[in-house]
Computed example of a mutant assay.
Amino acid sequence: MEYLILIAGLAVVALVIGGVVFLRPGRRKPSPPVEHAERPEVPRTGTTVLEKEDQAAPPAERAPPVEEAPVRPGVEIEQPPPGAGRLVRLRARLARSQNAFGKTLLGLLSRDTLDDDAWEEIEDTLIGADIGVAVSRQITEALRTRVQVLGTRSVEEVRALLKEELVKQIGPDFDRAVRTEPHGDKPAVVMVVGVNGTGKTTTTGKLARVLVGDGRTVLLGAADTFRAAAADQLQTWGERVGAEVVRKEEGADPASVAFDAVKRGIESKVDTVIVDTAGRLHTKTGLMDELGKVKRVIEKQAAVGEVLLVLDATTGQNGMQQARVFAEVVNITGIVLTKLDGTAKGGIVVQVQRELGVPVKLVGLGEGPDDLAPFEPEAFVDAILGDA
């Protein structure tokens, strides 16, 4: 009997010890590791401040994803040269295209005998340079009178006479300053208008460089929403000089882009907002409605100080027709003549000013980023006539 009790006790002890051992943590047989497929690394163009803040926030507080343009790596901000003296520095570009015109005139005026045929040839040369018939006749008559009074005609004297007459016709008294100074707490606003293909968007970017070179802060508005390439092009120009660009999707309301650009310019306290507008010329009525709306919307926040019309100097009379349409649609305050280095007809400066009654304020003299220059009549005429 005692023997049976002893066996039963040993069995109970064994069961207790076995249960403890079985239930102890860490004694389970470890599960085999689960192999996860390695996630491919997705190339990124940079993490924005917004994304960093979003990642740090609890899931419930995270903002919805924001669509934004990718940050392009490796874009260095450039410091362009100032605007003052640019035309003098670019004089060689003008001299190459315009010098034949100047040399022809100087050669004709320096002849020993100036008969009626010679004066007619002088007038024809002026007309051929796109100065216009009426103005060419005025210049010829003024030169004829002064040469007869002067008597002798050295090259230096003829050059001085011709320079004086040309500068007079170009209009030295025009106010050619581009109004880009802020008004109190509001930025200056510049609208750039013109037909696509004249260099309008490029001019907007180059003007930003001129202003940054002069120490101004600039914001660009990509209101030409009918061409995606225009906004992309403006983005590139802005990145190079550190200027913010306000843009929207292709086909968005141009007036909405202009409004947001000026609003952003006020908030960020920039000196100047430049708005690039669409250049379609389907009908005068459509153009008027569109540009008028853009201007009205901008002026709800800030005054439009400049409306610059961009013209291609190589298009001649076709460019003049475009200029007339825009002049009827919107109050133009100044003209930008692009590709002036690509034509020998520099007289378009005189013609377009007389036609529209507004000054040429800027000229484009090449494909380089800093080839836009403030227009200076005397430097322009000096380049045409070359050295005496």
Rank of each mutant, 00 (worst) to 15 (best):
E2F: 10
G346K: 03
V257I: 13
K293H: 03
Y3G: 14
R280A: 09
S31Q: 13
L308S: 03
E121V: 00
A95M: 08
Q235W: 00
E328Q: 12
V147E: 13
I5A: 12
E267K: 05
L234Q: 03
W237L: 05
I335T: 11
V195T: 13
P32W: 01
K339N: 12
H183Q: 13
I17N: 02
P33S: 02
T333Q: 07
I122S: 12
V297I: 13
P182D: 04
A255H: 04
A303W: 00
E38F: 08
T125M: 04
L385F: 04
E51S: 09
G194Q: 04
E250P: 00
D370I: 11
F380A: 09
R72L: 14
K284E: 14
G19V: 01
L291P: 11
L372A: 11
K345M: 09
T315G: 12
G74P: 07
E121Q: 05
V49R: 03
G199D: 10
V66C: 05
A373D: 06
V245M: 06
E244W: 08
A252N: 10
P40D: 14
T47Q: 06
L219N: 02
A100Y: 01
A208R: 01
K248I: 00
E355G: 00
F226Y: 15
T47M: 09
V189L: 11
A228K: 05
L150D: 08
L150F: 03
T283P: 06
P25S: 07
L220P: 12
I266P: 00
R216D: 15
R24I: 15
V381P: 02
E267D: 11
P182I: 01
G286F: 02
D370G: 04
V167W: 02
P81K: 07
R146I: 08
L234M: 02
L219S: 06
V149K: 11
R89H: 12
A142T: 09
P70A: 12
D224M: 10
V273A: 06
V147N: 05
M191D: 07
E67W: 01
A95H: 12
V42K: 07
R39L: 14
V190D: 15
R227L: 11
R28T: 15
V329G: 08
E53V: 15
D115W: 02
K163Q: 14
D289Y: 01
G19Y: 05
G107Y: 00
T145K: 08
E328G: 13
A118V: 12
T140R: 04
I348Q: 03
T314D: 14
V212W: 01
Q322A: 13
V310F: 05
H183T: 12
H183P: 06
E76C: 05
E244V: 15
T283W: 01
V358E: 06
G128V: 07
L87C: 06
V294P: 04
K206M: 08
R96N: 10
L109R: 01
P81L: 14
V133Y: 13
R62E: 14
L340H: 03
E53T: 09
R62Q: 15
V325E: 11
V257G: 09
L219R: 06
G286C: 03
D116A: 15
